[in-house]
Design a protein around this nucleic acid. Structure first.
Length: 136
DNA sequence: GCCAACGTTGGC
DNA sequence: GCCAACGTTGGC
């Protein structure tokens, strides 16, 4: 079991949209590091859902529903990948970017370190710590 | 294969 | 809206 964090601008596709859809194809990633992370995802892996730009907080949990396949929104062969994710539940208390950025232990979190990466792994220690902050 | 120019992302 | 960080592109 691995842990991940995926980003979306809520104006683009929000956690509420995922709740409505239950599952959704996570398409449109056009960055190799993020793509490689998508390809490393295993069915059942847990993901944090982060609202970038306007909210800047982790709002909920989802899981990998279907492992990487060719991104249907790309016409570039199998250069880009997508996965399907499935809605799980909201965090009791969303965790804001500021909170994480201020924590010594989160300085190694990709979200803090590499702000532009849109799909990233989360270590088990970070995961547990964030879940505690989220009241989960 | 280097690197300048350019585009994009996302925090501020 | 600005701009830093970073990825990509293309001329040399």
């Amino acid at each position: 079991m691995n842990y991940w964090l995926i980003k979306s601008e809520p104006e683009e596709y929000s956690f509420a949209d995922l709740k409505k859809d239950t599952t959704t194809p996570w398409t449109g990633v056009r960055n190799y590091a993020a793509r490689n992370n998508l390809r490393a995802m295993k069915k059942g892996d847990l993901c944090m859902f982060y609202h970038s730009v306007s909210d800047k907080e982790i709002v909920g949990l989802c899981k990998v529903h279907k492992e990487a396949y060719i991104d249907p929104t790309s016409t570039d062969g199998d250069r880009w990948s997508a996965v399907d994710i499935k809605y799980l539940k909201p965090l009791k208390k969303p965790v804001h970017f500021h909170t994480l950025k201020a924590m010594e232990s989160m300085q190694t979190l990709e979200l803090v370190r590499l702000s532009r990466l849109s799909v990233m792994p989360v270590s088990e220690q970070h995961w547990d710590e964030i879940m505690a902050l989220a009241g989960m």
